[in-house]
Design a protein around this nucleic acid. Structure first.
Length: 761
DNA sequence: TCCATCCGGGG
DNA sequence: GTGTACGGATGGA
């Protein structure tokens, strides 16, 4: 059986598709690049047939029937020998009319036309999609360590170690004199890179994962290899960098280089609670595994110089964690790949809008429909100018509330799109019986199912089927896990469609559709709030698709039940309001900023975390502790805690490392117009002979004195003292003030002109 | 309140 | 790679 792992094309004059399977490569010589032309007038067809560009004629020209923008039309389908010919032809044939689907990368074109999926079967010799698929490709995780002095710069210093982790391979290649079970000792850096190439070539991983490896590990290896004129080829497949917008991505054909950080950042992060997306934090949340603490970059330097064994353990653990993350994350990538039908290399680097777009292109193709062209730059800019009203967010009733029910719509926007048939091709149709305008003055056809709702419906139904099937499975079983991953992948795409319709770069952009979705959403949520209030609930807060309700008295649960039943009776299918959970208490600060705590003491915090590094630790820690105390009902204790931190700051009992503020240089120090503290400190550091480049992290401490904050900031390494007042007034107090304001409006107002500082003193 | 700028991950 | 693909928070005017 031939399983498709990766795909690309070769050939200089005639393109040949290369399909990478397990240990074999198959060539398909019978597929040609093509695009469509909609001739401005019928005479053009014969002219197009005579066209020659660079002395070459088209391979084949056909007149075909396709659907485009809702109409069936005759178009010219122009086949060429090589994808590289397309840009010239696309440009030259401009004079005949609109060119369509002239920017679909060749390998993607192949997968779409053949309905192939990554990790799916390809039947040979027909090159047709088969039914089988695998979910256990050979995965190898890797991580590099380098000598680190000063700011990170790709290729500046030597690579000291490369750690690798897979099912049956665990090793650290290094030239440092380290002893350890998994050490492969080599002579120097050159041999290290050679050993790495050899290992990959022999192990033949089907997927190679790293963490931030697109922007760090792979480009670093490439730079260092150049120094020794090493050829970075793995079983004859070269490492190349594929340009993708502002960034570029490393690629080795057949090996599926995947950067887990990119996928976490672009796809998973909205579903995660961690605000930072470093390997440590992500592994902690997703795996409950802890990254070894080596003591920051100073600790790393020290380990390298004095005790490389520590660095070896650290490197091995990083590769192990990366492998663990891959096991957790990749199944979702595989399922998305099956839904969208693109190579894993592309899939794993796409944002949700792109996932939707390529799914739509694939679906359009299967419906004999040509996709709209991508909007041009100026169109995108123009679209960006037009904003539209988003979701309804109710101003919360500030303060602490007890016993809170959280109800939300299951997939609000997708269900609105489906139930109202919202789609670029159903808007303002001509049927007389459809013309009942919605809240934005537009209507959507009632007679034919729209393009996007139809696709959503099939995803939605498949997900429901999976979910009901899962109820009969045991939670720990493999089949449950697979079904769960599938439904998550479906949910991810379902949730992305609304955003896609309003995304300026979308081919199927439809401002009026997106606008209608949020307008209808606002109507529903407001209606729900009214219903809740009529039943006696107090609506403490509500945002987009959720309401948070409290009710005094003994009938809480009964009324809640009544409420849900009543609401759901009136909602059109498949819309549904569900009980998300009941919380013991919650603190509401402002829109989007609140915290909830359940009976087990578990906190859900939204919008309040201060984990950004441009806040001093003392402020971040104090905020967290205050929040916990308030939710535990101990507001006095919280005030006391702040007072104690303030007192400690005044007495300089808080150590200096708690007041260090870290900011990154994004350009060279002399390029800044606004001289912020970190720029001023960067200039100081340069005077001290330290090299500062874009990317350098500047650690500073604010000192007592006159003048601006910038002028009073000095490098953290030279700081012996700090300005207590600054850290109290500008860091600690602002971080907690909102919380207390929400708790204690009256008391704060009673404070009148008294400053916040006095209040906490 | 609006607009420009900054930031992410990695050693 | 049949290129020309951020989005959210912040802080200054």
């Amino acid at each position: 059986m031939f399983i498709l792992l990766d795909i690309d094309y070769a050939g200089t004059n005639k393109a040949v598709i290369r399909l990478f399977g397990r240990n074999e490569v198959k060539l398909d010589t019978n597929f040609s690049p093509y695009f469509y032309i909609v001739p401005d007038n019928p005479d053009f067809v014969s002219k197009i047939k005579k066209e020659k560009i660079n002395e070459r004629t088209a391979e084949r020209i056909e007149l075909v029937k396709r659907k485009f923008e809702g109409k069936e039309i005759e178009v010219v389908q122009l086949f060429l020998s090589h994808p590289k010919d397309v840009p010239a032809w696309r440009y030259e044939l401009k004079k005949y009319g609109k060119r369509l689907e002239a920017d679909i990368p060749f390998a993607r074109r192949y997968m779409i036309d053949k309905s192939l999926s990554p990790l799916g079967e390809v039947k040979l010799p027909e090159f047709e999609a088969g039914k089988a698929s695998i979910r256990d490709p050979r995965v190898l995780a890797f991580d590099i360590e380098t000598i680190s002095d000063g700011p990170i710069k790709i290729g500046k210093n030597k690579i000291t170690m490369i750690s690798l982790w897979g099912q049956d391979i665990q090793k650290v290649i290094t030239w440092a004199p380290v002893k350890g079970e998994h050490v492969e000792l080599v002579k120097g850096e050159k041999e290290l890179i050679q050993a790495f190439i050899r290992t990959l070539s022999e192990y033949k991983p089907e997927i190679v994962v790293g963490y931030n490896s697109d922007m760090f590990d792979w480009p670093y290896i490439k730079k260092r290899a150049e120094k020794y004129k090493l050829n970075l080829s793995f079983n004859k497949e070269k490492l190349v960098f594929v340009k993708r917008g502002r960034a570029s991505a490393p690629r080795i054909s057949g090996m599926n280089l995947i950067d887990l950080y990119v996928f976490v950042r672009d796809i998973l992060s909205p579903y995660m609670s961690s605000e930072t997306l470093g390997l440590g934090a992500v592994a902690q949340e997703l795996l409950n595994e802890t990254k070894l603490d080596i003591g920051g970059h100073q600790g790393m330097t020290k380990a390298w110089e004095e005790n490389p064994e520590v660095l070896y353990e650290y490197a091995l653990q990083d590769a192990k964690i990366t492998y663990g993350l891959a096991k957790e994350i990749l199944p979702l990538v595989y399922e998305l790949g099956t839904i969208v039908g693109l190579p894993l290399f592309d899939m794993s680097r796409m944002r949700s809008g792109q996932l939707v777009e390529w799914l739509l292109i694939k679906e359009a193709h299967s419906q004999n429909t040509i996709a709209p062209n991508r909007p041009k730059r100026d169109t995108i800019l123009e679209r960006r100018q037009t904003s539209f009203e988003g979701a309804f967010v109710k101003e919360p009733i500030k303060g602490l509330h007890k016993q809170i029910a959280v109800c939300d719509f299951r997939s609000l926007y997708p269900t609105i799109i489906m139930s109202q048939n919202i789609s670029p091709d159903t808007i303002d149709c001509e049927h007389a019986d459809c013309k009942i305008p919605g809240p934005t003055g537009h209507w959507f056809c009632k007679n034919k199912a729209g393009f996007t709702p139809k696709i959503l419906k099939s995803l939605f139904d498949e997900r429901l089927k999976l979910k009901s099937g899962m109820k009969k499975m045991t939670r720990d079983s493999v089949e449950y896990k697979i079904a769960d991953t599938k439904q998550k992948a479906l949910k991810l795409i379902l949730n992305s469609v609304y955003g896609y319709l309003g995304f300026p770069g979308a081919r199927w952009y439809s401002l009026e559709s997106a606008r209608a979705v949020t307008a209808i959403g606002r109507e529903y949520i407001k209606q729900i709030m009214e219903t809740a209030e009529k039943l006696g609930f107090t609506v403490v807060y509500g945002d987009t698709d959720s309401v948070m309700l409290t009710l005094d008295g003994p009938n809480f649960e009964k009324t809640l039940d009544k409420f849900l039943k009543k609401v759901n009776k009136t909602l059109p299918a498949p819309m549904e309001l569900e009980l998300d959970g009941v919380y013991d208490c919650g603190l509401f600060v402002t829109k989007k900023r609140y915290a909830l705590m359940d009976a087990q003491g578990k906190m859900v915090i939204k919008g309040l975390e201060r984990v950004r590094r441009d806040w001093a630790q003392v402020a971040r820690k104090t905020q967290e502790q205050v929040l916990r105390l308030i939710l535990q009902g101990d507001t006095d204790g919280a005030i006391k805690h702040v007072k104690s931190v303030v007192a400690q700051l005044k007495k300089k009992e808080i150590p200096i490392d708690q007041v260090i503020i870290t900011e990154q240089m994004t350009k060279r120090p002399e390029e800044y117009k606004a001289i912020g503290p970190h720029v001023k400190v960067a200039r100081d550091l340069i005077k001290m002979g330290k090299p500062i480049e874009p990317g350098s992290l500047i650690e500073y401490v604010v000192q007592i004195g006159k003048g601006s904050i910038s002028s009073r900031s000095i490098p953290a390494e030279t700081a012996q003292d700090y300005d207590s007042e600054y850290y109290i007034e500008r860091q600690v107090i602002p971080a907690v003030a909102r919380l207390f304001e929400a708790m204690n409006r009256d008391q704060h107002e009673l404070q009148g002109k008294q400053s916040r500082l006095e209040f906490f003193s």
